[in-house]
Simulated assay, not measured.
Amino acid sequence: MRQSPDSTFDPLAALRPAPGLRVLVTGGTSGIGLAIVRVLEAAGARVHVCGTDADRLAAHLGAVDGRTGTVCDVSSETEVRTLFAEAHEALGGLDVLVNNAGIAGPTAPVEKVDPAEWRRTLDIDLTGAFLCAREAAPLLRDTSGAIVNISSVAGRLGYALRSPYNAAKFGMRGLTESLARELGPDGVRVNEVLPGFVDSDRLNRTTQARAEAMEVPFEEVEQILLSKTSLRTKVSEEEVALLVAYLLSPAARGISGQSLSICGNVEYL
C-alpha cells in the first residue's frame, strides 16, 4: 500500500541550524567570518565573535543588539583562554566553534620568505585553530557540539609562491580529521570548508601581491586564476557561510571528518 507523507517532517527545517545555537566565530568581524555570523544569526543562533582590531570589533558589536565579542589574537594562548571565558559567560555554554581567523601570509618564492613571516602565518592559521579547539573540546563534549574549520583549496592543492599559507592549510586538514576521530565518540562533529577564489577584498590583495611577484598586470593574474576553475567563476562569502550553516543543520548530523570544497571546482593552483 502506498504510504502517505509524514506530515510531521519538515525538510526545509532540517536544512537549517536549530535556533538558539551558541556559536563562537573567530575572525568574525569581516569577510567570510562576518558572512558566517550574519547567516547564523538569521537562523536564530547566538554568536560571540573575536577579532584583533578593537575599533572594528566595537563597530561590529554595535551593529546588532545582543551580539558579543572579544579582542583576541588566536595565536596567543593567554588571549584564547580569555576569549573562551568571555564567550562562555556571554553564551552560557558552547555548541559550535567556527575556526575562521587567518591571514594570507607572504607571496614570494620560498628562498625569499622571511622565516618570521612563515612562523606568523602558521601561528595564526594553524596553531590558532588548535588553541581554540583545545579550549572548545570540553565544552563541546558537554553539548555534543560541532567544529567547522575554515580552510582553503590551498589545503588540497599545492600553491606556488604561497608556501606558508599552503602548509598551514594542509595542516588544517590533518587537524580536522584528527579531531573528528578524537571527539566523535562524544558526539562532536568536526569538518572543514575549503573555499576557492572568494570574491572579496582579501582575494584582490593576494592577487595584486601575486601580480607584483610575477611582474604581470593584475587582470592577467585574475584571468589565470579563473581559468583554473571549472566553472570559471568566483564564489561569494555568503555561499561559504551557507555551507557552514548546512554543516550545523540536522541534515548534516552524519557528516564528520570531511573536507568540503566550495570553489567552482578549482583544478589546480
Rank of each mutant, 00 (worst) to 15 (best):
V244D: 00
A14G: 14
A160G: 14
S75G: 11
R81K: 13
L225F: 10
A167S: 15
V221C: 00
A87D: 11
A180G: 02
P109E: 11
E111S: 12
S178P: 01
V47T: 11
L40I: 04
N100K: 11
E238W: 00
V216E: 11
V110D: 13
N149G: 04
L248D: 02
V148G: 03
A45N: 14
G69V: 03
F218K: 04
E117K: 14
C50L: 08
N166R: 12
E222H: 09
S256Y: 04
L34P: 07
T206C: 04
G51W: 12
L97Y: 00
E215P: 00
G184N: 04
L248C: 01
P109M: 08
G20Y: 08
I103T: 06
P217D: 02
F84I: 01
S227K: 00
G257R: 03
H88E: 14
Q258G: 03
I224D: 15
M172N: 15
T68M: 03
G145I: 04
M1R: 12
V25M: 06
R16Q: 12
I150W: 00
E220T: 14
Q223Y: 07
G174D: 04
V80L: 01
W118G: 05
G93V: 01
A116N: 10
T229L: 02
E212C: 03
A42P: 13
A59T: 11
G158K: 04
L161W: 10
Y165T: 07
A213P: 02
R67Y: 08
P185D: 00
V64C: 15
V64L: 14
A43L: 06
S152L: 01
D186T: 08
T29H: 11
V25C: 06
T26Y: 05
T29P: 10
F9Y: 11
S144K: 14
V148Y: 03
A59P: 03
R232N: 11
A245P: 00
S4V: 07
R205H: 12
M214G: 06
E238S: 09
A241Q: 00
T70A: 02
A136D: 05
I103N: 07
L269N: 10
D114N: 13
H60A: 13
G28E: 10
R38F: 06
V25W: 05
E135M: 14
L226H: 03
R156Y: 06
V244C: 00
G257C: 03
I150R: 01
R67K: 06
L243N: 00
R81Q: 12
F170K: 01
F130G: 03
P106M: 08
A87K: 07
S7G: 11
V153M: 06
D65T: 15
D55K: 14
A42D: 15
L226F: 02
L139A: 14
A133F: 05
T206P: 03
V193E: 00
T206F: 10
A13R: 14
A133C: 15
P185W: 01
N149D: 07
S76P: 08
C72L: 04
G27E: 08
E192K: 05
K169Q: 05
R38M: 11
P106Y: 02
A35Q: 09
A136K: 06
